[in-house]
Simulated assay, not measured.
Amino acid sequence: MTSAEAVTEQDALRWYEFVQERHAEELRESYPTTDSTPATDTYREQYRAAQSNYQDVVDAVHRGDQAAAEEHLAGLRERARKWAAHPDHPEASPA
Rank of each mutant, 00 (worst) to 15 (best):
T2F: 11
T2V: 07
A4T: 15
E5V: 07
A6W: 04
T8G: 14
T8D: 14
A12M: 02
E17P: 12
F18W: 07
F18K: 13
F18N: 06
V19Q: 03
V19E: 10
E21R: 13
E21Q: 15
H23I: 08
S30C: 09
Y31H: 10
P32C: 02
T34G: 15
T34L: 07
T34C: 05
D35G: 04
D35V: 12
D35T: 14
T37C: 12
P38D: 04
A39S: 02
Y43S: 00
Y43C: 01
Y43T: 01
R44M: 09
Q46A: 09
R48M: 08
A49Y: 05
A49F: 04
A50C: 04
A50R: 02
A50L: 03
N53Q: 12
N53M: 08
D56S: 15
V57F: 03
V57G: 01
V58A: 06
D59H: 14
D59L: 09
A60K: 08
A60M: 07
A60T: 03
V61Y: 04
V61D: 02
H62E: 15
G64T: 03
D65I: 12
Q66Y: 03
A67V: 10
A67G: 10
E70M: 14
L73P: 00
A74M: 06
R77I: 01
E78I: 03
A80I: 00
A80F: 00
K82T: 13
K82W: 07
W83I: 00
A84H: 06
A85Q: 11
D88S: 09
H89Q: 01
P90K: 01
A92N: 01
S93E: 15
A95N: 09
